[in-house]
Computed example of a mutant assay.
Amino acid sequence: MSTRSTRFRFDGDVVLLGRVAVPLVVLALWQVLAMSVSGFALATPAATFEALVGGFRSGWMIDGLQRTMTELVVAYALAIVVGIWVGVVLGLNDFWHDVFEPIVLGTYAIPKVTLFPIFLFVFQFGMDSKIAFGWFHGVFPVAILTMSAMATIEDTHLDVARSLRLSRWQTFRHVVVPSILPGLVIGLRLGFNLTFLGIVLGEMFASRAGLGYTLVEYIAGVQTAPMLAIIVVLVLIATVVNVGFFALENHLGSRGSDTAQMA
């Protein structure tokens, strides 16, 4: 085995060890902090786990999770469809790209929480306002990174697609998607995170169901154990999805490196 491969293997083992150590250190610090203050201020990890299990057994955690995940899936699906469509259209047309890029970037920079009353007024009190608010959070990174990734497509590839008289769908599937996939995956990851954030914020501000609403209820009642249990569930959902996206990004990156070496 070469020295270089041994070093890479050692570095990989160290990274893996660090990733395992981080949550353990967090739990240890959490336990120490909880022991240094009253249980009224911060529940211990054990008490939080007990509240988590109790929440699933009694059903309130399941009900809130189902509501939040339903809103999240719908909002994220809409963000993906609209974001990719806008990014591809603006990326293929220089005129519309120059016209709308400053508008898209400027709108993305607006603190979106300040616009929630508008969504509440338009879509009323219910799931629709949270879905629209989550979509508004997530659509911009998908559109912006898709638009940026479109610049990586070789003009010759598009010319070949035209010469072969491929339909728009065939061009999108066989030319556009393979070319923009690495950048698109990053946009999808950021879009998920912001969509998730928008859904939870919407539930916290104006809702009668969902984990965000339940979280506010427990905060108001100063019940730290179930409050932390909800936070743990939200963190786990975000972590699992992001780990999946990071794995996909690494796979695409390694595949691109192998292709370059073969060339």
Rank of each mutant, 00 (worst) to 15 (best):
L184C: 04
Q31P: 00
A51P: 02
E249S: 00
R255F: 06
L27W: 08
G244W: 03
S167C: 06
M35K: 13
L42K: 04
G210V: 06
E101P: 00
M150S: 11
F133E: 11
V122W: 12
S179V: 03
A21T: 08
A132R: 07
Q170G: 05
N250V: 01
V235C: 12
F205G: 04
L215H: 10
A34P: 03
F133K: 08
G198Q: 05
V241Y: 09
F245Y: 06
L194Y: 13
T195M: 02
H157C: 03
L24R: 01
G187N: 03
S129N: 13
P178Q: 04
I80R: 04
I231E: 08
G138Y: 02
H137Y: 15
S179R: 07
S5L: 14
F136Y: 12
T70L: 14
F192K: 05
I62H: 03
S148Q: 11
G126A: 15
M127V: 09
L236M: 13
T107K: 00
G191K: 02
M1L: 15
G12C: 06
L52H: 06
R168K: 09
P45W: 07
I153F: 00
D258A: 14
R67Q: 15
G256D: 14
P226R: 08
F8P: 03
S38E: 05
M147G: 04
A263C: 01
V222D: 05
A229I: 01
T68P: 08
L197I: 14
D128E: 11
D63R: 08
I219L: 09
S38C: 00
W60T: 01
W60H: 04
M150Q: 10
G210D: 09
L27N: 02
A263K: 11
L90Q: 01
S2F: 12
F125M: 10
W30E: 06
Y213E: 11
M204D: 01
I103S: 02
L115Q: 10
L188A: 07
V232M: 14
G55V: 11
A79K: 05
V26W: 11
G91F: 01
I186L: 13
K130R: 15
Q223M: 10
R189L: 08
F40G: 06
V15R: 12
L248D: 05
A109D: 07
A151I: 07
L234S: 11
V89H: 02
S179T: 09
G210P: 09
L33G: 11
W30P: 10
I237Q: 10
F100G: 01
L90E: 04
T70K: 13
L145K: 02
F95L: 12
L252D: 06
L194N: 07
L201R: 01
V86G: 05
S163C: 10
A209L: 11
F172M: 04
E50W: 03
L92T: 01
M127F: 13
F192E: 07
L72K: 02
R9H: 08
A132E: 04
F123I: 12
S5F: 08
T44I: 00
F205I: 15
F196S: 00
A238Q: 03
S254F: 09
G244F: 06
L164G: 04
A209I: 12
M150E: 09
I84C: 01
G91K: 02
I237E: 09
L188R: 02
A220V: 09
G106M: 04
D155T: 12
T6M: 13
Y108K: 00
V175L: 01
F123Q: 08
T239K: 09
W85H: 03
I62Q: 11
S36I: 01
L120R: 08
T3K: 14
F8S: 15
P45C: 05
